[in-house]
Design a protein around this nucleic acid. Structure first.
Length: 486
RNA sequence: GGCCCCGUCGUCUAGCGGCCUAGGACUCUGGCUUCUCAAGCCAGCUACGAGGGUUCGAAUCCCUUCGGGGCUACCA
């Protein structure tokens, strides 16, 4: 491709929420554009109007934004080669379809779906490669008029000449397809609307795309795409460079889908995964920066990303590893960043309403839970004890605080804490250690578990003394006496 | 069935002819630390699909085979 400025595009067909596989592709496209100082184009492929809805398109835009994959040309930002939504480019496709027809590169095909299916059946039965048999390739004007008189709506088919298509895939090397196995394909439907095969090729040329990084499922459609380039009069040296990314697989070794794992990026968003974690993890699926590096920032990804280091083999999606990376990213957050990410989860779970006092308390509490969570969605459960009005000990833990030993601990704690003048986690700890551990001779684990249940309601909580400091003296004493009454 | 792609620990990967008795990470197991849970630290388990070549030497190159996947639409 010489030293033409790199232009890459991410061109999903939003028939649902963007899924993990889509995003991995988008991420690589984006990273490649940024790495090379090129342009990242975002294009909506909605030629199949029955499956793509405005809602899904809006959601795709939102998701990409959330992930931080900013595009230079595309929906909402424009660009000199727009519009970037295929449903708004119909006249362009019609123009090229007509040109191909005039050039005899394409032809009208009047075969009906039923006829096609019957012949495909026969091909399969005869053990011949199924595909269009070329029946309408050389129709005379009279035949065409005849079919039209019958009321048949023709599709426009691209003529695949004999020979083969060979190209250098940047990830797989030389790939070759014999045209015997690439039948004439449909460019325009009977109703006049274009198909992906037409639109994708035309747009990539018109938008001056230089590199096509896309899913491996499109590998075998490449000969059709280059065929359209030729018909458009594009010279082979000016074709975009192809790089077919390996799949992201589900646990059962098939393409990741709803059946074998969570696929929607929005699901991960709601589950409390950070965009940086999702991108970092996804970047490691089918690519690696080498040197045993794994935890990288978006910035580092753009610096390190090269197509040469992309794999040709598929990768399985592993939620555990994503969670581990998410935990790392959460721990690396500054307090203010962590606060911003936490608040929506706390509000959605109705733990806080959002008052200034509540936010201040959350901010004070976050440092003690930052290293204890792997997903933001765990925050509400961890901080709930600080905000609940109708506090109650977990049913499962009631027995543990109502036994004699526990009562003694609570009684003594109540007395010690009541006389405490300075209420900080260190003064609390000092007072309790000297009384419960040293004087009463209890094991820390035993003594503090009783207290933990009384104060937080659960056997599992953030660090006890810090929690007590946050809760405040009166609430702690109240809860301890409450537990004594159990 | 045909065409195409792929094949290193359970998973993601490092490795591009000798540095590999195969390294890292996640998971799992054991331990340390410890007020619970985490985090952190230490240790351990486990891999070059198989068979032929080429070579002084192969995880790395070639062939075959087996296995997995994709495509085979008036979906993308």
């Amino acid at each position: 491709m010489g030293d033409k400025k790199v232009r890459v595009r991410f061109a999903p067909s939003p028939t649902g929420d963007l899924h993990v596989g889509n995003i991995r592709t988008a991420l690589f496209d984006w990273a490649y554009a940024r790495h090379t100082g090129g342009t990242f184009i975002f294009r909506i492929e909605d030629t199949d109007t029955t499956r793509v809805t405005d809602e899904y398109i809006a959601a795709a835009i939102d998701t990409l934004r959330w992930l931080g994959l900013q595009w230079d040309e595309g929906p909402e930002v424009g660009g000199e080669f727009g519009p970037y939504q295929q449903s708004q480019r119909m006249d362009i496709y019609a123009h090229w379809a007509k040109k191909f027809l005039d050039q005899k590169d394409a032809y009208y095909c009047f075969c009906t779906a039923a006829e096609l299916e019957a012949r495909r059946e026969a091909q399969r039965a005869a053990n011949v490669a199924p595909g269009y048999d070329g029946q309408c390739r050389n129709l005379s004007e009279e035949q065409i008029a005849g079919f039209r008189a019958e009321g048949r709506q023709p599709v426009i088919r691209m003529r695949m000449p004999d020979g083969q298509t060979t190209f250098i895939d940047q990830i797989r090397g030389e790939v070759s397809f014999d045209h015997k196995f690439v039948p004439d394909f449909v460019l325009v439907r009977g109703d006049g609307s274009p198909l992906y095969t037409l639109a994708v090729a035309v747009d990539d040329i018109l938008m001056k795309v230089t590199h096509i990084l896309r899913g491996e499922d499109l590998l075998s459609s490449t000969p059709r795409q280059t065929r359209v380039y030729q018909a458009m009069g594009i010279k082979e040296e000016d074709f975009p460079v192809f790089a077919h990314l390996p799949f992201v697989m589900g646990q059962d070794n098939t393409k990741l889908s709803k059946r074998n794992g969570e696929v929607s990026v929005n699901w991960y968003r709601e589950a409390g995964f950070l965009p940086e974690a999702i991108c970092n993890y996804l970047a490691l699926l089918g690519w690696s920066p080498g040197e045993d590096r794994e935890n990288i920032s978006m910035q580092e990804l753009t610096e390190l990303f090269t197509v040469e280091r992309v794999h040709s083999s598929p990768a399985k999606f592993d939620m555990k590893k994503l969670e581990a990376i998410n935990g790392d990213k959460i721990r690396a957050l500054t307090l203010d960043e962590f606060l911003d990410w936490s608040l929506p989860f706390l509000k959605d779970a109705n733990v806080i309403a959002g008052s200034e006092e509540e936010i201040a308390l959350v901010k004070a509490a976050l440092p003690i839970i930052q290293e204890r969570i792997t997903k933001l969605s765990e925050i509400p459960a961890m901080l709930k004890f600080l905000f609940v009005k109708d506090f109650a000990v977990e049913p499962a833990s009631i027995a543990k605080v109502s036994e004699a030993g526990a009562k003694a601990v609570l009684l003594r704690s109540f007395a010690e804490l009541t006389s405490l003048t300075e209420w900080t986690h260190s003064t609390i700890e000092l007072a309790l250690r000297s009384s419960l551990i040293e004087e009463m001779g209890l094991k820390p684990r035993v003594a503090f578990t009783s207290l933990r249940i009384a104060v937080t309601g659960s056997t599992i909580s953030p660090p006890l003394f810090e929690s007590m400091e946050l809760l405040g003296k009166s609430v702690c004493l109240e809860r301890i006496s409450g537990a004594l009454a159990l």
